[in-house]
Design a binder for these strands. Sequence first.
DNA 1: CTGAAAGCGCTAACAC
DNA 2: GTGTTAGCGCTTTCAG
Lengths: 357, 357
Amino acid sequence: MRQKTSRSTIKEVALAAGVSTQTVSRVINERPDVSPETRKRVQEVIDQLAYRPSAVARSLIRQRSHTLGVVTAGLKYIGPSRILSGIASAVEEAGYSLLLKELSDFDTKEIEPIFEAFISRHVDGIIWAVPEVGDNRTWVKEASLDVEIPLVYLTMQAQENISVVSVDNYLGGKMAVSHLLEQGFKHIGHISGPLDWWEARQRMTAWKDVLNENGIKVKDEHSVEGDWSLSSGIEATKKLLNQYPDVDAIFVANDQMALSAIQYLRQNGRRVPEDIGIVGFDDIPESEFFFPPLTTIQQDQNTVAKLAVEDIIKTIESGWHKLEPKEPQTIIVPPTLVVRQSSLHLRGIHEKEVEIK
Amino acid sequence: MRQKTSRSTIKEVALAAGVSTQTVSRVINERPDVSPETRKRVQEVIDQLAYRPSAVARSLIRQRSHTLGVVTAGLKYIGPSRILSGIASAVEEAGYSLLLKELSDFDTKEIEPIFEAFISRHVDGIIWAVPEVGDNRTWVKEASLDVEIPLVYLTMQAQENISVVSVDNYLGGKMAVSHLLEQGFKHIGHISGPLDWWEARQRMTAWKDVLNENGIKVKDEHSVEGDWSLSSGIEATKKLLNQYPDVDAIFVANDQMALSAIQYLRQNGRRVPEDIGIVGFDDIPESEFFFPPLTTIQQDQNTVAKLAVEDIIKTIESGWHKLEPKEPQTIIVPPTLVVRQSSLHLRGIHEKEVEIK
DNA sequence: CTGAAAGCGCTAACAC
DNA sequence: GTGTTAGCGCTTTCAG
C-alpha cells in the first residue's frame, strides 16, 4: 500500500521504529556502528513509509549542497545545448544536481543576480558556459570576485587566476587553412563569425597566420564578417565573391554559414569543390549529408564538458577554500579535421575533366 | 572594500546592526512593521556585509523551495533544447530556479531516482519534458503516483488525471497533407519518425486520415519508417521510391529527414517540387535556406514551454495539495503551416515548362 | 515597532 | 551500539 500523506521525516521514522533520530541517521548514512537487527528494523520502516532524507536539511547542516550551478546562453543553438548535455550527464554521474540559469542575452548585465541566486542556494561550484562575447568576460570576472566558490569557465580565453576548459579554436583554424593549402588552393578567403566573439577572432587569426607563414599576403577584402546564421552565410559569400573575385577557397567560421555558402555558390554556377573549396567549423550533423559533404573541424564538446565538471568537482572535494589562492587550471582540447568532399581540390580537378568530356 | 570571508548570516547582520535577527528578517522580507531608521541601518549593514539570505534555510522552514524540477531527454537535438530554453526563461521570469535532470535514454528506467532527487530537494513542481517513446509514459505515471507534487507533462498524449501541454501533432500532419492535396499532388507518400514515438504516430495517422477522407487508398508500401536522422531520410527516400514508384509528393515527419530526402532526390535527377513535392515538420533554421526552401509545419515550442510553466506555477501558488484530486489541464497548441517552394506544384508546372523550352 | 523562544529536518559531538 | 544535546540559518508565533 502506498503512502499518500505528506513527506515523512526522520522523526516519524524514529518513532515508528522505536529508536532515536540519531540511529535513523546512522542507517541512512550507512554508518557501521548500528547493530544488524536495529538496522534491519529501521530500514523496514524507511521502506514502508517511503522515507527520503531531505537534501535541504542536509545542505543546511553540512554546508554542502551537492549541487552545481551552470550558466548557459543561446540554448536554442546546437553548440551550447550539446555542451549542456555533456555537462548534465557528467554532473549526474558525479552524483551532483544541476541548477540551471540561462542568460537571455550574451552580453547581458544580469550576471550579479545569477551569482546571488547560486550563492543563496549554496551551490558547491559554478560552471560558466557562456561564450566570450564583447567584454562579458570582464563583467563575469568582476562579479565573481567576491564569490568564494570554485568556478570554471568554458570556451573562454585562458587567463591568470581563472580555470578554463576550451576547444583550441586557433589550432582548428590552422588545421582548416593548412588543409586548403595542401589541396592546392591559392586564394583562400574567410567568412568569420561576429568579431566580438573570442572564438571568431581566434579562428580568423589562425587563418591570417597560416597564410602569412606561407608567404601569402592577406588583405582586408579577403574576409567578410558573418553572424553565424545561415542567412549571413549567403550575404557574406555574395560580398566576398564581389570584393575578392580570385577567391578559390573559403574557410568559413561555422558549418551553418558554410552550408548556406555552398548553397549560394551552387545556385550561382560555382561548383564546390572544383571552382571553390569550402571548409567549415563545428561538424554539425547536417554537414555529412550535404551536397557536397562538408569538410569541417570537429569540436569534441562532450569532452570539454566532462573535463570541466571533473575539474570543478576535484576542486570542491579537495576542500578548497577561497582564502588560499588556488592554482587555476587551463585545459585546451584539440579539435579534429574531418575531410569530406567540399575541400578536395586535387581530386576535384580530375572529376572536372571527366564531367566536361 | 570587499567582503572576502565566508558568507555572512542573519545573526552577524543583527549583531552588527544592534538589532535582533527577527528585525533583520523583517527588513529582508520587506515587512511594513519596521521603523524607517531601523530599516535603513539594517539595510546598510546588509549591503556592507554583502549579506544574502540563505535560500536553503528558507526552504527548510517555509517548506517551499521556489525551485522547479525539469526532466529532458535528447538535449543534443534541436527540438528538446529549444523547449528547455523556453522553460528556462519562463521559470526565471516567474522567479523560480530550475533543477535539471537529463534522461540519458528515452526509455530508460531511471525514473525513480530522478523523482527521489527532486523530492529530496523539495522542488515545488516537476515538468516532464521527455518525448513519449515506447511505454515510458507508463513508467512515469507509475513512478509519479506517490509524488505529491504538481506535475506537468510536455508533448505527451493527453489523458485522465494528468496535465499535458503539447503541440497538436495530428493537426500539423493534417495541414501538411491537405496542403499537398490542394497543390494537386495525387500520390502522397509518408516518411514517418520511429513509430514507438507518440508524435510520429500522430503525424502518420493524420496523413492516413486525410488521404482516406479524400477517397485515396493508403497502402502499407506508401510509407517508410525513419528515425528522425538525416541518414535515415536518405535511406527512407530510396526505399519509398522503390516500393511506391508513382509517388509525386512526400510528407516527411521532420525537417532533418526532409532535407536529406531533397538532397537525395536531386542527386538522383528528381526535381523538387516539379517531380516530387515535399513538406517537412518542425521548421528548423536550415529549412528556410535550403534549395528549394522547405515547406514545413512550425511548432511554437516556446509557447508550449511558457504555458507549461505558467500552468504549474499557478497550481503551486494556489496551494494545491495532493489530497484533493486536482483537475488536470490539457493544453494543445496549434502549429502553423509555413509554405515555401518545396511543395508548390501549381506554380512548379509552369516553371517546368519554361525551363524545358 | 521590536525581541525572545521555538522549531523546520537533519547531523556532529559527546555521553552512557 | 544508542541516545541526548545543540545548532545549521532562517521564520513564525507571541510577548512586551
